[in-house]
Design a protein around this nucleic acid. Structure first.
Length: 565
RNA sequence: CGGGGUGUGGCCCAGUCGGUAGGGCGCCACGUUCGGGACGUGGAGGUCGGCAGUUCAAGUCUGCCCACCCCGACCA
């Protein structure tokens, strides 16, 4: 492609709406056009990159035994009503104002594909099967952000596996995990796999693939020593047990104007981990009390899971008061009857805690579970934070930010049972297929790739996903002494199968070189009067400061060498 | 949905006390330049987000609405 003919132009300044570096660079380089909030058009350069990403994904999915198909985007609402997900997705579902108002625009495809499998699988001999598609998804995200990072319309590779038993699912899952690792490696991206929460309708195992970036939306807990890594939504840490200590008699203490855990610990001369704090939540309109050791914070996702709640929020001061609790001195002891209590399992690991007295300016000493208070649910509801202890190796944990570029789930039989995707097993018994599902967002992957590969001048595309592999910059290109050899080199490189972008514009050297850097094409070849005089061309990798002069006759070989061919 | 911010040519912005819109980049033409965003001259391009209102007069004041961005909630 000649740059003089290429649709889309580069900008010197970033449009004001962009905040993230990938967003700024994609706009400046002419990769994307914003249509609306969370809606983008891909211009030719971005589309080429996306097609390359798509092809890498396709090859790896096929190699892992996947079969590509194409599902519909328009779906009958009744299909979603059967699994209860019309409600589960709620306002995130795009609904269609069609003639009968009975259609929606699919945000994902478990329902449709499971129905298709129901119609096409009847025996264990038909399984296992892994089906996938690369297609557009629509989700009415409450807050799109960061350019292509979170959008409402996006291309996704979604795969679904169907197996006869758990063992089979494990195998399919492992094959998908390996395919994902291959995909990221081939895209030139550094991605880590972390344990993940599977969400409200997930099965048990779930992992996310995270590209580490300060701009990421997710917090990841990683061990400083071993390979433990988990999304903070899911992460667990080791809770130290106190050496056994006889339970002492509970005692009320006057603690004037002491409201924070730190102040309380100081006043009582204990460490913060020997205090208890009580927080009130509202879960699906029901008031719930939580008790956790003072130095920990509550992980609301874990709490939501423990309660099997759909909605969860902290109670307002008015609600706290109405429940008969004194803010700042709330206590698990003497709670009004009927108030559900969720205790973090850390309450079992220590004795003689300091806790609120539920009375202004008073706390209690020597509070013990379960002697002095009881809980309806005891579960791990701790938010894992930096500095806590790894459950695998006892080393310190730390946190990082990441962009989720892939997510895999072991779904189990949730969908196959509801929809009736059964098969007859070896014994002639009807069984639901055991499912897994696996997703990668392509646009987000592209944006994440740029987040991870850029410098102050522009993008540094990994070669495998670069829109073009080589940019041929002809300086003083209107001079026929340059035009002729440059045109010839362009033709030769193309014949050799190299994806080359030919900057033949009558622009100054500065403009061309800066644009080449901005676009991030991995290899730059410069043809100029100066070089021609010396019988050479200049070759420079985008990632390197060093430019090399190469004899004209050896250019193609050198380019191919740099491209790893 | 709560909080904050921004809307003026394709992009970045200025516009004072209300007096009928301006700069830079980009674009077109001509000329001079030519290895890290050259220069000169001449041009094209604007319902100032929208609708009401106040006023002799509104980009500017008032009200309502809309869009977009950021933080949070949310994100099977």
């Amino acid at each position: 492609m000649r740059v003089s003919k290429l649709f889309g132009k580069t900008l010197r300044e970033s449009p004001a709406e962009a905040e993230l570096i990938s967003h700024k660079l994609m706009l400046r380089a002419g990769l994307i056009h914003q249509v609306g909030s969370g809606i983008y058009a891909y211009l030719p350069l971005a589309w080429r990159s996306l097609r390359k990403i798509e092809q890498i994904i396709r090859e790896e999915m096929d190699a892992a035994g996947g079969q590509e198909l194409r599902l519909s985007i328009l779906q009958p609402r009744e299909l979603w009503d059967t699994t209860g997900r019309t409600e589960a997705f709620g306002p995130d579902l795009f609904k269609l104002l069609d003639r009968r108002d009975r259609t929606l625009v699919a945000p994902t495809h478990e329902e449709e594909l499971t129905t298709i499998v129901k119609n096409n699988v009847s025996s264990y001999r038909d399984l296992p099967v892994i089906l996938y598609q690369i297609h557009t998804k629509f989700r009415d995200e409450p807050r799109p952000r960061g350019g292509l990072i979170r959008v409402r319309e996006f291309d996704m590779k979604d795969a679904y596996s169907f197996d006869v038993d758990q063992d089979g699912l494990d195998k399919s899952y492992d094959a998908m995990v390996q395919a994902y690792k291959n995909i990221y490696a081939r895209c030139g991206l550094d991605v880590i796999m972390v344990e993940a929460d599977s969400g409200a309708i997930g099965g048990k195992d779930s992992h996310e693939f995270m590209l580490l970036a300060g701009s990421g939306e997710d917090t990841i807990v990683v061990c400083t020593n071993c390979d433990y890594a988990a999304n903070s939504e899911k992460a667990v840490s080791k809770k130290h047990r106190q050496a056994p200590e006889p339970e002492a008699a509970m005692e009320e203490v006057h603690t004037p104007a002491i409201k924070t855990i730190e102040a309380l610990a100081k006043f009582m001369d204990v460490r913060t981990n020997k205090t208890l704090k009580t927080l009130l939540y509202v879960a699906d309109d029901e008031l719930v009390s939580t008790v956790i050791r003072g130095h920990f914070n509550v992980n609301e996702i874990k709490l939501k899971r423990a309660l099997k709640a759909k909605d969860l929020r902290l109670a307002t001061p008015e609600e706290v008061k109405a429940a008969g609790l004194v803010q700042g001195f709330a206590s698990p002891i003497g709670l009004k009857g009927g108030l559900k209590v969720v205790a973090d399992d850390s309450v079992e690991t220590f004795s003689n805690f300091v806790a609120g007295a539920n009375k202004a300016d008073h706390h209690l000493k020597n509070v013990n579970y379960p002697r002095d208070f009881q809980a309806n649910i005891v579960a791990d509801i701790t938010l894992v934070e930096k500095g806590q202890t790894c459950i695998k190796c006892d080393s310190k944990l730390t946190t990082k930010r990441g962009i989720e570029v892939g997510h895999v789930f072991k779904l189990g039989t949730v969908y196959s049972e509801i929809i009736g995707a059964h098969f007859l097993d070896n014994d002639g018994k009807q069984q639901p297929a055991i499912m897994g599902c696996y997703g990668i967002g392509l646009g987000r992957l592209l944006a994440a790739a740029i987040e991870q590969n850029h410098d102050d001048k522009g993008i540094l595309f990994p070669t495998s996903i670069a829109p073009y592999e080589v940019i041929l910059s002809a300086l003083k290109s209107e001079d026929s002494e340059v035009t002729k050899p440059a045109d010839a080199l362009y033709t030769t490189l193309q014949k050799e199968g190299v994806h080359v972008l030919y900057d033949d514009r009558p622009e100054s050297a500065g403009v061309k070189l800066n644009d080449a850097d901005l676009l991030g094409i991995p290899v730059r070849v410069v043809v100029s009067p100066r070089n021609l005089k010396n019988g050479v061309v200049e070759i420079k990798e985008r990632s390197s400061e060093q430019a090399n002069e190469v004899a004209s006759g050896e250019v193609v070989a050198e380019v191919k060498r740099l491209l790893g061919r």
